[in-house]
């Protein structure tokens, strides 16, 4: 194990810990959130943090497969955020 690989492992561990912390903090906001805008925002942040977790998992295992997974998560997250906001704005998703 060289020095560079050691530092990379530490950086990956730190990235995992911060992403999980961010996930927990936004979950607290999701539960507390006084308005529905806050809840949508917290869900959006959680989706983006999950995307980051998948990316870091791909780095740590050295595999390329997780690229498709993260792209799918990004698309689903965007569509679901817009659908939730649209539902509150218009009372309907597709008019």
């Amino acid at each position: 194990m060289t020095e560079a690989a050691d530092i990379m492992n530490i950086a990956i561990a730190i990235a995992f810990v911060t992403l999980v912390l961010g996930q927990i903090l936004s979950m607290v906001r999701l539960v507390l959130g006084p308005t529905s805008g806050d809840r949508i925002l917290a869900l959006d942040t959680m989706v983006i943090n999950a995307l980051g977790l998948v990316v870091v998992l791909g780095i740590s295992q050295g595999v390329q497969i997780y690229f498709e997974v993260s792209l799918l998560i990004a698309m689903l997250g965007f569509v679901s955020t817009v659908a939730l906001a649209r539902f509150i704005l218009r009372g309907d998703i597709i008019e």
């Binding site: 911060t18 903090l25 936004s26 906001r29 980051g52 870091v56």
Partner: peptide, 21 residues
């Protein structure tokens, strides 16, 4: 360089989550 990018990215993720809370 990859480790540095990872650290910067996770710093921004953490700051964003704290700001949200």
């Amino acid at each position: 360089a990859a480790a540095l990018f990872l650290l910067i990215g996770s710093g921004f993720v953490f700051v964003g989550a704290v700001g949200l809370l």
